[in-house]
């Protein structure tokens, strides 16, 4: 009886020490989950999730304060990645967001632009160039396609346009598989 107690006590101490050591030795700095989620988010900073950007959403997710299916630009793919990281149940995306949209960039009709700088203020990544009373233009390379500038334009001169496919950015389509593994 007494031996058993001693043995188990000993084991408890040993494992306790081991666990304690491990928690010190393998301590993780910061909040890696938020960072990992931030990595998979598309960084459009569109705010369609209800948070002011991708990082705040990632942080809210890491704290478990938000749903996994809010990232509209990321679509189902990102939702699944998020649920993998957070270890939560995947949730259906809203119908329209489930289908991934082809990437679009904002385009300013420069004849209509009145130079109100409203879109410049709205752009989360400073991808719009221009100054007061001067025509604005979008740096296509830096536009994330968040569409935030579209509603703020007082003269509706901003439209979203898909990126033009040329022989340079054309992709070979994936072969159709006759038999999908079930």
């Amino acid at each position: 009886m007494i031996e058993a107690i001693i043995v188990f006590l000993g084991l408890a101490i040993v494992f306790g020490l081991l666990l304690g050591y491990a928690s010190l030795r393998f301590k993780v700095e910061g909040n890696p989950m938020a960072e990992r989620i931030d990595k998979v988010l598309p960084q459009t900073q569109c705010g369609q999730c209800g948070f002011p950007g991708c990082k705040p959403y990632a942080e809210a997710l890491a704290k478990g304060e938000s749903e996994v299916n809010l990232c509209i630009p990321g679509g189902t793919e990102v939702m699944i990645q998020i649920s993998e990281i957070t270890g939560r149940e995947p949730k259906e995306m809203d119908a329209e967001a489930a289908e991934p949209k082809p990437k679009e960039v904002a385009f300013i009709d420069e004849d209509l632009c009145i130079g109100c700088v409203l879109c410049i203020k709205e752009c989360p990544v400073d991808a719009i160039l221009g100054a007061t009373k001067q025509m604005h233009t979008v740096i296509q390379k830096e536009c994330t396609g968040c569409e935030k500038c579209v509603p703020v334009c007082p003269v509706d001169c901003i439209s979203m346009q898909p990126i033009e496919i040329t022989t340079k950015n054309w992709q070979w389509p994936e072969p159709q598989t006759v038999q999908e593994a079930k």
């Binding site: 960084q43 900073q45 991708c54 989360p124 990544v125 830096e142 994330t144 992709q171 070979w172 072969p175």
Partner: peptide, 28 residues
């Protein structure tokens, strides 16, 4: 064709990663 597709996918993914990183930096 699988390899051609994979190659262009990998290139796109890399470009996207760069763009994402840039967008993040600019946003921050």
């Amino acid at each position: 064709q699988y390899y051609r597709h994979a190659k262009s996918e990998i290139k796109t993914i890399k470009a996207e990663q760069q763009a994402t990183e840039l967008a993040k930096q600019r946003h921050e």
